[in-house]
Amino acid sequence: MKIINFMGQRKLAVVFSTVLLIAAIASLATRQLNWGLDFTGGTLVEVYYSDSANLNTIRDTLGQGGYEGAAVMSFGTEQDVLIRLPQGHSDKEGSALVSLLQDNYDGNVELRRIEFVGPQVGDELREQGGLAMLLALGLVMLYIAFRFQFKFAVGAVVALIHDVIITLGFFSITGMEFDLTVLAALLAVIGYSLNDTIVVSDRIRENFRKLRRSDPIEVINISLTETLGRTLVTSLTTLLVLLALALFGGEMINAFAIALIVGVGIGTYSSIYVAANTLIMMGVSKEDLIIPVKEGADQEDLTP
């Protein structure tokens, strides 16, 4: 098999990742995220019109009815309408709003859902989400340090942070709504990208022990080439189902699917270029894996 010189492009990869990261961080700093209702609090009403709905008429109706600042948009189809009221409206107003719309419309207005989130919930959720993310990163780092070696743990976590920031940046730049399901998707991205990174790291460790050659770049190139087929196939199958989810899953799950598609794409790239690159930068060598580390982490692997 021809060894692909992945690491030959590693300088380019560093530049590419840095540009993406800077763009993501810059956008996050200036535009922030378009936080969804789960985080900002407020009221959201989804209604279904028996005929196609005229958004301007609805806006006028709501404006006259005393709901200033209501955002009206269509949701998926022409008949589905999403109305978002800012913070400050009480929890009782959702159903009143629906009857107001019905009174000003000849056909039938069907209530799909009302969501009211109080201000105290949103802040807590953001805190919790951040905490979950940090906890996940921390525990994963511990597990990899225990199963592999500290440098691999750093490599994996750098790749994860890279993926999370870029996916967040994607949501910030496109202005897509960041709700609770996207947060879940982000955590799933951590899981997925990790999966990828571990498969690659596993092979790097194996080859460091098996191959006579000790040039880390060469060993890593060989390992990446060997796992490339698997990396691509798994990413492909996952992307296939995510595509099905994004296309057929409906509006409520759309942002979730998109977040995962972006995350899986970036995760595949990062397990090749970011995790392995970090290993090289940290000067990984045969010695890191052959001599049992003081914690006795790799001992069971030495006697296969």
Partner: peptide, 12 residues
């Protein structure tokens, strides 16, 4: 006090 409320219609 009520801090969160979600209603989902049967058709949805």
């Amino acid at each position: 006090s009520f801090v969160e409320e979600r209603t989902i219609g049967p058709s949805l």
